[in-house]
Every structure is written in C-alpha cells, then in structure tokens.
C-alpha cells in the first residue's frame, strides 16, 4: 500500500516534469490549429513551423555564434582557471593569500552591481557587436579556480616531486601530470561553464544588436518577443525546441555528470 502510493507520486512527478517537453516537441510538428490540445499525436505531421523559423531568422548562424562563444569561454576557464588553481594550491608566491580572499569577495558580488559599468566598458573599448564582448568578460571564473585549487590539493606531492626531478616545468607538470588525474573536476567546471554561457540571454541582449553576431538564445528571444513570429505558436515553439535540442541531447548522454556537477556546486557554492 505504502509502496504503491510512493510509486504513484513519483510517476505523477515524472509526468509533470517531462510531459510539457514532449508536448512542446510534438506541437512543433502539428498543424497550427491543433496545437491548443492536450494530446501528443497530430492528425498529420508537418514541418511548416521549422521551415518558417529557418526562413525568417538566421538560426544556424546564431547556433554557430553560440558554439564559438561557449567553446571559447569553456576552453579559457579550463586553461587559465587550472593554471591559477595550480599556482594557488601548489606554489608559494607573493599575494597568494590575498588572491584567495579577492576571489571569494568577487564571488559575492551580484551581477546587478557590475552590469551597467561593464556595459559602459564594452562601449568604450568598441567591443559592442563583436565576439570580444561576449567572450572576454567570461574568460575567468573565480568559482572554477577555487574548484581546481581544492582538487589539486589532493594530488600527492611525491608525484609532483618526481616529475620535477625529471626536469618537467610547472606548466608541463600541470598539463601532463595533473590534468590526466583531474577528469572529474575538469568535467564539472566544463559542464557548468558551458551551460551557463550557452543559456545566458541577458548579457548578449545588452551588448549585441547586430543580427549576425547574436547567440542562439538571444536570437530566439528576440524572434519570440519582437513579433517576428507573428503570434504563431508552432513557430515560437519550433525555435525553442531547436534551442533546447543540443542541451537535451548532451543531457541524455551525460546526465549523471550534469546532475553531479550541478549538485556539487550547489553544495560548495
């Protein structure tokens, strides 16, 4: 009896969390008239919604922009973040303790505070409507650095001493010895950085007005809000589905990593 009740609630929850996504995907294949209904199966399957999305906005171009931006940011956060994390955990240098405090301090600063001055900086540097505005401010992550520092502390000192005896430099030690041992933290920082950057809309809306530089979430937002979709539900949902697809596919394959990464940051952050 108790078991049955537990199952009932859990399955009800699954319907509540998953059905809207199924409904959304099925709606994009329905004729416009049939979208406002609860069912999933259309009387006939049509690709009209997708054809309109591709005809009206350069969605593939925006997909490419998003990939360039998110991959650059993720690569930079992994590369520079692990360098700084290595220095903080393994080397002695002037200002090390100050740096940890500064990083903790910056992590407490809400974006509301720096958003406007940061936009003005972009204007003054003439970076608006360029990839630079989308990428450069996101190239460092205090949070990533601290995760790397924490993880690198657990690497045995003997390993590093041995590598040093073999004449490896610090950078070689970091990338040849420590990186291969650090898959979990690299995956965690990588997934979180990529996801945050991929899903961000506010910053692109602020610094990009030129359609050819827009990221995919921004393009879809503007498409849906500006009236370009002409209040057609199917077309809006098709754009949303295209935007969700890469993340959902990645999630389907790596869901364990997604869940563990986000949960671990929730606990530590």
């Amino acid at each position: 009896m108790k078991r049955a009740l537990i199952w009932l609630i859990l399955i009800l929850g699954t319907v509540v969390f998953l059905y809207p996504f199924l409904w959304m995907v099925s709606a994009t294949f329905k004729p416009e008239m049939e979208i406002p209904s609860f069912g999933l199966l259309p009387s006939s399957i049509t690709l009209a919604s997708y054809e309109q999305v591709f005809a009206k906005i350069p969605i593939l171009r925006s997909l490419l922009n998003s990939l360039v931006v998110s991959i650059s940011i993720t690569a930079s956060v992994l590369f520079f973040g692990s360098m700084v994390g290595y220095a903080l955990s393994r080397l002695r240098f002037r200002g090390r303790e100050v740096m940890v405090m500064v990083i903790l301090f910056t992590m407490m600063i809400p974006f509301q505070l720096t958003m406007i001055p940061l936009y003005i900086l972009m204007v003054k540097l003439h970076w608006t409507d360029t990839y630079l505005a989308l990428i450069v401010p996101g190239m460092m992550s205090g949070f990533g650095i601290l995760l790397f520092r924490q993880f690198f502390k657990s690497v045995p000192q003997a390993l590093i001493d041995a590598a040093r005896m073999d004449g490896l430099s610090d950078l070689q030690i970091l990338f040849r010895i420590i990186w291969p041992l650090s898959r979990p933290v690299l995956i965690t920082v990588g997934i979180i950085t990529f996801m945050n950057s991929w899903n961000d809309v506010l910053w692109p809306l602020i610094v990009i007005r030129d359609q050819s530089i827009m990221t995919m979430p921004q393009m879809v937002t503007i498409f849906a809000v500006s009236g370009m979709a002409e209040a057609q539900l199917g077309v809006k949902l098709a754009a949303a589905t295209l935007l969700a697809l890469p993340v959902i596919i990645a999630y389907a394959f790596f869901q364990r990593y997604f869940i563990e990464s986000l949960a671990s940051t929730g606990l530590k952050g």
Partner: peptide
C-alpha cells in the same frame, strides 16, 4: 616556484 606562481596568477 615563487616566480612561476606569480606569473601564473
């Protein structure tokens, strides 16, 4: 290491 640390930071 103190110089590299500084450079890396």
């Amino acid at each position: 290491s103190s110089r590299t640390g500084f450079l890396l930071s």
